[in-house]
Write a protein that binds this DNA or RNA. Structure first.
Lengths: 339, 339
DNA sequence: CTGTTAGCGCGTTCAC
DNA sequence: GTGAACGCGCTAACAG
């Protein structure tokens, strides 16, 4: 029956409508909803009823404007096609949502330029916190971040620059997996990488360091492909590698997708795994436990990374200092039948 | 130098700051940014410079409040671990971002209750449009949608209730794949499903219809598991199926994950594929072309669905009527060596 | 425990 | 082509 027609607006139910309905002031409704403890039980009951009855949905824009807090957290990951990041996102949501934060997901497609664009756009939402993957933001993005001055935690990698981060050492994990292959007696170990992001590159450095230490590093056993990683890519890269280094006795694939592609291609070529060629992957996809043979790989704590990073961010957003600026969650070698 | 300290606020650069810097009024800055044509070239140049120099980032909350348009679109998908939805999301972003819309992604985890919760939360952002997966919203969610009165397009499935939707017939695709197996001469065709979402169920109905038509339907060849689908689940379900129907000559797996698990398990059991047992999947994961044998499956137009749905939403948000309320994008049988 | 006042940053509306 | 006033819906700050 209200006649007021403010603008063309779709006249959503507002706090004032609820207030009028209940017969109290708007601020009381606001409090009942946000800090229920500050309101009488009976009043709160009536308010809750009215909210339900009227179908009131708070307006986040208004809340954000008035309170200078958006209750939103931006998370930028390089890919959604990679189970690693999907699991991390799930952990983040599981951690932040119960605390009243909405997660805004951005997929940078491994492109610093896209990351910058997304960041610029998402900053318009006034996020209370930001979760980033790695440290490879471009200059513009770094400037944006600095001047936005919003609590930020970096995931997946570690460094000692004082930035908050939760992850594990990519270098060490690459080194350890290579070391494991050496310990098993493999001497001509190849390395296959695609999608040359910073973490891939660091794992490659770990591989190189281990082989150099053993006096066994040979550049022609290494192939790095800038194209995205995929099973098909793994098959192609095996072909390429065997052309230039036919005598490899093991291959460290920078992730499980590639490793699976290599394994399937070996089946086609009747190369016995691991007898003629051992295969190791990275990241431990669910599937990797089920192939024949099961794939040796590195389990990375992606869910834990999301949890811990989100909790660290929660601390920062609350204005507290986390116990430590860097959290190393480690990794685990899963030695299975493919090596 | 400004002394005004309005509240505790972090004093971000605002339109007014830019205006002061350039020496014009705030509204002019606003126009220069949103409708550049309405402002002199030289002025616009100066404004752009100032914006860059000051690092001005628009405040979406304020814009949204003042204009009653949020330039945000909410997209709800049941899973991010499924390449299908990830590809659809990519298409949506590719379509909407250039048109000035930010995509807000929600993962419902195949749970209508979670979908309702997410919807409720995301409605607070005042989205200009909504993209949903399927039609299985629960009552509360449907009520929310109705009273929000926001343009909405449903993806993946088709119906004729008048709701806007873009997808393909799940029933038909399940029917067609089964029909194809029948045509190849298979007579004792099993069906494996996990994660019993509505689309899975409809494909199962297609399977049943085709077999009934041929007089070959036998309930004991069908296993439906409510747990999420995975490669490991495929291996387990094969075991279960072979117990109750050891003489199956083909299996229709409701998605490629399951099919891969079945294939790997067959390798372990030395069951020759397709000679002893044919395997078909659904959705065409990248990997499915590379296994041994390559997997017969159904290619679904997931990227196109995202594109077309986003474009339809764009029409609706612009206040126009799309040409048609329903768009059927079809599917394609990919018959490969596993059948 | 509840109400009053004021203002967050921007765009709409109507002037000029 | 540019500007002034006003208000979007909500909450901080202070009263009472």
């Amino acid at each position: 029956m209200t006649d007021r027609k403010p603008r063309a607006g779709q006249s959503r139910v507002t706090l004032n409508d609820v207030a009028a309905h209940v017969g109290v002031s708007a601020i009381t409704i606001s409090r009942a909803l946000n800090k229920p403890a500050l309101v009488t039980d009976s009043l709160r009951q009536r308010i809750d009823d009215a909210v339900r009855q009227l179908g009131y949905v708070p307006n986040r824009a208004a809340r954000s404007l008035a309170s200078a807090r958006s209750h939103s957290v931006v998370v930028l990951v390089p890919s959604l096609s990679n189970a690693v990041f999907v699991d991390t996102l799930a952990a983040i949501h599981d951690t932040l949502y119960p605390r009243g934060y909405q997660t805004l997901i951005g997929d940078t497609r491994y492109a610093p330029q896209d990351e910058e664009t997304l960041l610029r756009t998402y900053l318009e939402y006034n996020p209370d916190g930001i979760l980033l993957t790695g440290f490879d933001q471009n200059d513009a993005a770094s400037t944006l971040l600095r001047s936005a001055d919003i609590p930020t935690v970096h995931m997946m990698e570690l460094d000692d620059s004082g930035r908050y981060c939760v992850g594990f050492s990519q270098f060490d994990s690459g080194y350890a997996l290579t070391r494991q292959l050496l310990d098993k007696g493999y001497r001509r170990i190849g390395f296959l990488a695609a999608q040359l992001d910073p973490r891939t590159i660091k794992r490659g450095e770990g591989y190189r360091a281990a082989l150099r230490e053993a006096g066994l590093y040979q550049p022609h056993r290494e192939i790095a492909e800038a194209q995205p990683s995929s099973v098909g890519q793994g098959a192609r890269l095996l072909d390429e590698l065997l052309r230039q280094a036919p005598d490899c006795d093991a291959i460290f694939c920078n992730n499980d997708d590639l490793a699976l592609g290599v394994m399937f291609e070996c089946q086609r070529r009747h190369i016995a795994v691991p007898q003629q060629l051992a295969i190791a992957g990275f990241n431990n996809l669910e599937m990797s436990a089920w192939t024949n043979p099961a794939l040796t790989t590195v389990a990375t704590p992606r869910y834990a990374i999301g949890q811990v990073a989100a909790n660290m961010l929660l601390e920062l957003m609350a204005g507290r200092q986390p116990d430590s600026t860097t959290v190393d969650l480690g990794y685990k070698l899963l030695v299975r039948d493919s090596t």
